[in-house]
Simulated scan of single mutants.
Amino acid sequence: MSTDQPDEHRIGRRTYVIAPVEPLDTDGVRTVAVGTLVFAVAFVALLPFYGWLEQTDRTWWLWTCLAGAGLGLLGLEYVRRRRDRRLAAADAGTTPGPTA
């Protein structure tokens, strides 16, 4: 097989094809940033409806959005630091430690 063709693996009567796909950017910064932004926008969008949320016992929607945005900010800092450690380790030619 040439390197351009996908790998095929047979397990029992099934054949699995593994396509030659480049790996995605896996540092997670963009994913966490988008998730945090979605929670923050949802929080702001629900603020005008606080009275209705309170009447229908759904204020937890608002506080869930606030918690998601807050935890997202913590997560964003975490993934940024992890990315920076990995880039520094790659530049130095070493592998990051177990806390990376």
Rank of each mutant, 00 (worst) to 15 (best):
T95M: 06
G70R: 00
G51E: 03
E8V: 14
T94P: 00
R85A: 04
H9N: 10
R58V: 01
Q55T: 00
V32Q: 02
D84E: 12
A89R: 02
W60L: 07
W52C: 00
G68S: 00
P98G: 00
I18K: 12
T56W: 02
R85I: 05
V32D: 01
Y78K: 06
T64S: 11
R14C: 12
V79E: 04
D25Q: 15
L76P: 11
F39K: 01
L62A: 07
H9P: 03
V34W: 08
G75D: 03
G35K: 06
V32P: 02
P48Y: 09
Y16H: 15
F43C: 09
D91T: 06
E77G: 13
V29T: 12
R30C: 12
A92Y: 03
V32I: 15
L53W: 02
A19L: 15
G51D: 02
R85S: 06
L47Q: 10
A88H: 07
R30T: 15
R30I: 11
A67M: 07
T56F: 00
L47R: 08
V38E: 11
T36Y: 01
V29F: 04
L87C: 03
R82Q: 12
A92F: 06
E8P: 03
R13P: 03
D91G: 01
P6W: 13
A92E: 03
P48H: 12
L87P: 05
G70P: 06
D7P: 01
T64H: 07
A88I: 01
L47W: 11
L71V: 08
G72Q: 06
D84H: 11
R58K: 06
V41I: 14
A92R: 08
W52N: 02
V44Y: 14
I11A: 09
R82N: 04
W61L: 15
V34E: 14
G93P: 05
P23Y: 05
E8T: 15
R14E: 14
G93V: 07
R83C: 10
W63E: 02
V32C: 02
V21T: 13
T56E: 05
G75R: 04
